[in-house]
Design a protein around this nucleic acid. Structure first.
Lengths: 333, 333
DNA sequence: CATAGTAATAAAAACGTTTTTATTTAGGGT
DNA sequence: ACCCTAAATAAAAACGTTTTTATTACTATG
């Protein structure tokens, strides 16, 4: 009941293993008659090649690894699905690794189990990336801009998007704004917060009139943060919120509604991502749409480029788009 | 700039490759002094072993594969996270493959890239499983009950859960029920629908008073299905819905609310899964909680069991639990 | 001092492929 | 019938490990 190897097939078909290999891999030197014999034997033995052997010999795995520290949320699966599909078109396989810790992550990357990697993991620092580059493993980073010999990045223009979204709130007449922060060490969160602050400062307003709550990119945390905020009598007043992402925006709106206020009449709310739910939620969410599918496709294209040509890595920044729906309105008081 | 191999380390440390291997893998036959020399050389060359070589020789990968046809939704990432964590405790790695088609799936499984697999993929039929078993690849199925030589399954008791949930609606006085169906070929959907019907029949009621809408396990689809239903003047009346999962339950409630009705006053709604959002949604969702974490942990335990001992596979059924919250109420008319 | 025994290291084999090189077979022209 | 060439197949090498077996160097024992 052991797995059949190429030797078993060779024995059964009465040929050498090289002929089996050639027959099975479509090399056209083998006579149709013997090829048929090999195919029959392979089928009879339920033979399927051991990829370890093949990969060891050929030096490539035809697999690219996706390494991430979190698989939660709509962003992730949209990304993964597109990457998987795009890779399949190029005859590459995909393997997702959710690395629990830093060493596990690096070991996976360095173990030659994939030809290249797409990484969305905030734990990798520049030294790690240099290490990887030194080993000749092409990498496309999705969570921060970098470039190098075998290193590319494809990130969203979070600062500008946030700047523009905030500007939009200011245009609507809002003067006291709130920011619903995401994870501390997340670059997008950082950039979005920076764009938010810059827009306020550029409008000649003071950051002192600003409120920052912890939304943690989650619906639940945002819900609770706003619940607490709205229940505080001494709260710094605010008329509009920029949320770190859609999930937290939805949580915020639910808390606002639950507290008896109206969106957008009492509070305007803007999110980021334009997740599926955003458009048919009540009220439909004003949000910044990031081209996730495009990012995924570009990531694959870029990685395959690094893999096949010896081009130097580059960094690409994708612009988002403000989608105005019904969770924002003119300031009224 | 090529990757260093064990040979390079051996040359630099002036020892044989077997000594390098022994030193690096903690075999205690090597003299501390030479071990130090080897370690230093390895570090100096940034050496990390090629896993293909190791795995080819040792015949095992210390990796288990998770194969699935969809990575969307909260169920998936809760599952994945737990599997990953549990495996790490047992010193196994995890690799998730989103197989686009049937052959890709089987090839991945048969290529010896993992020691065993946890599968959540409705495209595998009995013949496939037999094929896998024939190749000695241990498998734990999560989407349907099976058992065999190297084959286990861990599934939820969907029929009974649904039966009990429906019974609960009947106890509340509802007599005309609706079912919000999930995917057609999904076993859980099938079982839940069956349990729903059985409960109605056992209560002496007729299925003719029943409505079935297509929720597709998604919030959006459910929203639209209910929107359409509520907008139909000639609709078959119903006072309570059993939804295929929480996502579709939420979509349904949103549509009901948007149409000007109240939950639970006008319509009771029950979901399945108890996703995070369910508890703080307004109204908090009555739902059936499936022990996803437990399923994931058991799956790993079972698979490692199949891998290490030669025990025969078994099938386990995990019971869910009805969590009563505020989306259900007594029938009132 | 010789030698058995042990500790340390080295050499060689093996895992299952692909690919390069070598050998055999077949076929056609003279 | 013979030789040359081309076609087909076989043999061997290689990929990077681990593991088994062999060799060397050392220590202790008689």
């Amino acid at each position: 009941m052991k797995k059949a190897t190429i030797k078993d097939v060779a024995r059964l078909a009465q040929v050498s293993i090289s002929t089996v290999s050639n027959a099975l891999n479509g090399v056209n030197v083998v006579k149709p008659q013997t090829k048929a014999r090999v195919l029959k034997a392979a089928h009879q033995l339920n033979y399927s090649p051991n990829l370890m052997g093949r990969q060891l010999r050929s030096g490539q795995t035809n697999t690219i690894g996706v390494f991430t520290d979190s698989v939660a949320g709509p962003y992730f699966y949209q990304l993964i699905e597109t990457i998987s599909k795009t890779l399949a078109d190029q005859h590459y396989g995909m393997s997702v690794t959710l690395a629990n810790n830093h060493t596990a992550l690096m070991n996976g990357l360095l173990g030659n189990t994939c030809d290249g990697a797409i990484i969305f993991d905030h734990r990798l620092d520049d030294r790690d990336l240099e290490h990887l580059a030194g080993q000749g493993i092409p990498v496309v980073m999705l969570d921060r801009p970098v470039s190098g010999e075998q290193l590319s990045s494809i990130v969203f223009d979070s600062f500008n998007e946030s700047y523009l979204a905030t500007q939009y709130l200011l245009q609507l007449g809002h003067r006291q704004l709130g920011y619903l922060a995401g994870y501390d060490h997340n670059r997008d969160n950082h950039e979005r917060f920076a764009g938010f602050k810059q827009a306020i400062l550029n409008a000649g307003l003071s950051l002192a009139d600003t409120v920052v709550l912890k939304g943690l990119f989650e619906e639940k945390a945002a819900f609770q943060a706003l619940q607490t905020y709205l229940a505080t009598p001494t709260r710094q007043p605010v008329s509009a919120f920029l949320a770190g992402n859609d999930l937290s925006a939805l949580g915020a709106i639910k808390a606002i509604t639950a507290a008896g206020y109206k969106v957008p009449n009492d509070y305007s709310v803007i999110g980021f991502d334009d997740i599926e739910m955003a458009s048919y939620f009540q009220p439909a969410l004003t949000t910044v749409r990031n081209p996730i599918t495009q990012q995924a496709q570009l990531a694959v294209k870029e990685l395959v480029g690094l893999l096949t040509t010896k081009a130097r890595g580059q960094q690409q920044v994708l612009p988002g788009k403000l989608i105005v729906r019904s969770s924002t309105a003119k300031f009224q008081n």
